Simulated scan of single mutants.
Amino acid sequence: MDQLTHFNEEGRAKMVDVSDKDSTARKAVARTEVAMHPDTLQRIKAGQVSKGDVLAVAQVAGIMAAKNTSQWIPMCHPLLLTGVNISFTDNGVDTLTIEAEVKTSGKTGVEMEALTAVSATALTVYDMCKAMQKDMVIGPTMLITKSGGKNGDYRANHA
């Protein structure tokens, strides 16, 4: 098992030192789903939610979350992101799928930024639609792919 890098010699938490790592192009894609009643999904798609355009607001929330991930996750490095894209698809019945692609050129990866982006996007969908339906279910949330860095590429088996 690899040594845990977020602990110092005293066993206390630390932010990993990436000073000696090379800057490389890095990309991560994460995905989550929001399961809801068919009527809720149709109202989102038709723009008939009283709080406004759910997908537009959720998209901005996801981008903002990716940019601020280091404020949410204590040991996460603040990163200069070079791109964030949030996309939506649905199964035509009762599930909204959210994907985030996050890019940077730097010394550490953007997996946490992609995961944070889809999480905040899904939470915003929930917030904007909770008056219509409180039993929406968020998840599973997962990393789909990552590229760049010394550990190379990753693709989830369930992708």
Rank of each mutant, 00 (worst) to 15 (best):
A25T: 01
I138H: 06
D20E: 15
T124S: 12
M142T: 07
A61E: 08
I98Q: 01
T40A: 10
N68Q: 15
C76F: 07
T89I: 06
A122K: 08
L81C: 10
D22W: 00
T145Y: 05
M128Y: 09
P38H: 10
R26C: 01
S23M: 10
T89M: 09
K51L: 14
I144S: 02
A61R: 04
A61H: 09
T95N: 04
S23H: 04
G62Q: 05
T97A: 12
P38M: 04
S147V: 05
E33R: 13
T141I: 15
L80E: 15
A131Y: 03
Q42T: 14
A65L: 09
A56F: 08
I138M: 14
R31E: 15
K67F: 11
V29E: 07
A65H: 07
M75D: 01
T32M: 11
T124R: 04
L55P: 11
P74T: 09
S119K: 00
T124V: 03
S23D: 09
A56M: 12
T116W: 00
A46N: 15
Y126V: 05
A25Q: 03
D135E: 14
S147R: 12
T121I: 01
L96Y: 06
M75Q: 11
M136E: 07
G106L: 04
S50P: 11
G83N: 13
I63W: 04
I44Y: 10
